[in-house]
Simulated scan of single mutants.
Amino acid sequence: MSAIKTKRIALNETARAYNDARAFEYANSDDIQVVKIQMSITHPRTDICDYYAGVDKYGLGAGVYPKDKAPVPHFHPFCRCQMIPKYAGEYSKPKLNANADKEYLLGLKEWQRARILGSKAKANEALKTGDINSVFNAMKPERYKVKSINEVAGNLGIIRDLNETDNMIENEKFNKIIGNILDGNIIKDKSKQLAIVGNIPLKYKKQIESLLGKKLVSKDIAITQNEIWHAIRGSKPNHKKASSEDIYNIPNILASNKHIYFDKAKNNLLYFSKSINQTQHIIYIAINLNYIIKAFGEDNYIITISKFKNSDYKSRIKTLVKLRG
């Protein structure tokens, strides 16, 4: 991987973690009622940021949204847009304008519409549907779709029961571990070699404990620097390695609560998800419920990562118990 791509991934994921933490904070504040999307003063060219910061969908002004509906940056690589919280009493009651996207596009020149959506064809599609966000998101992998504050905060609430500050710290630790490994380096500070990336889904807790035959001793799921190193740079055959994009996607896989199985032979909790950039493969996350690492006075279950071909999926799950909420 080139140094430029490595830097881009590290910077973008750190910024994404920061904005997600802010979304969680705003969603849980009774004082914050609306959020304004503000572009950087050094924004270089017309793109999707202009739409999110410029459309008036709720009669509150350009780029101002009820907080639950506000889009959360990162809108594109190296995006520098910010969410500015506004407080109760600063704005009137929001009223959705269903034609806002179409009116916004019609107020632009053709080349501006094409820049915002990526092409004239996509701009024309957005004009026809009147839904810029849906057309834009349809071009993006799930991890990079633009989500509202409510959607992001909901995921973070599932991912782990931490306050917004701790949430951001764990995200930054996770992203820093990956960034260093992509650069061929390791973090020597032991306190920064492990990051929480998820938790045991509460709705499956009783079922898991019944299958396990004992109480769970922790809710936290963590990943170690060593596991990420072997997953990305190890000497396993290439088809078993996970890409950096798949590693970055682990918290989302754990948060989605889909395709979770229990291996009674090994007491492993298993998650499956399609690889982001190699769709013929499936990412396989195993959590050994017999093994605990204690870090910072807390017990953590540790994950291991691998990958296998789609064609092997049915045989892999044949003897497993699928968890049902």
Rank of each mutant, 00 (worst) to 15 (best):
K192F: 02
N163T: 11
N226C: 04
I221Q: 03
G157L: 06
E172T: 11
S273W: 02
L156K: 12
K322S: 13
S306T: 15
I305E: 11
S210V: 12
E90P: 01
E13A: 05
F308T: 12
Y104R: 11
M83N: 01
E209L: 13
I9G: 02
A121M: 01
R233D: 10
E151I: 08
L105H: 10
Q82C: 03
Q278N: 14
P77N: 12
V217Y: 01
N268F: 13
N180G: 04
N185V: 08
K145W: 01
V135H: 09
I285G: 03
K214E: 15
E209I: 12
I260Y: 02
A100P: 07
G179W: 07
G154L: 09
K147P: 01
K120V: 12
I186R: 08
S2H: 11
S40Y: 06
F296G: 04
P237N: 14
I285K: 01
A17V: 14
I302E: 02
Y52I: 09
I186L: 14
N310W: 00
S256M: 06
P77E: 08
Y248R: 11
R143C: 00
N171I: 00
A222W: 02
A123Q: 06
K309A: 09
S315W: 06
I228H: 05
F262V: 00
K67A: 06
R8A: 12
D183K: 15
K294E: 13
D47V: 09
A98H: 03
K5R: 12
D31F: 04
K7T: 09
E164T: 05
E227R: 12
N185H: 11
D68S: 14
P66N: 10
I116M: 14
L323S: 15
L105N: 02
Y313S: 00
A114D: 14
L162G: 02
N300M: 04
D299M: 10
P201T: 10
D101R: 13
L194N: 00
A153L: 05
A21S: 15
H43M: 09
I132L: 11
A88K: 15
I253S: 01
K140H: 10
I177A: 01
Q112W: 02
K122L: 15
H259Y: 06
H76K: 14
N99F: 04
S243H: 07
L162Q: 07
K69C: 04
Q278G: 07
K206M: 00
E164N: 10
E125R: 13
L202V: 08
A88E: 15
I317P: 01
V146A: 05
D312Y: 13
N300D: 03
R80Q: 15
H259L: 10
I221T: 00
V72Y: 03
K176N: 09
H74P: 04
G213W: 03
P251N: 10
N288R: 03
G157E: 10
K215I: 11
K36D: 07
G234R: 11
M83H: 01
E142L: 08
Q280S: 11
D183P: 00
L117H: 01
K241S: 11
I253T: 12
A255P: 03
N249T: 07
L117M: 15
L269C: 04
P251V: 08
L127G: 08
D299R: 11
P237A: 10
D20C: 00
N155V: 03
F174R: 06
E227S: 09
K7M: 03
G63N: 14
K69S: 13
L162E: 04
L156Y: 05
K109R: 15
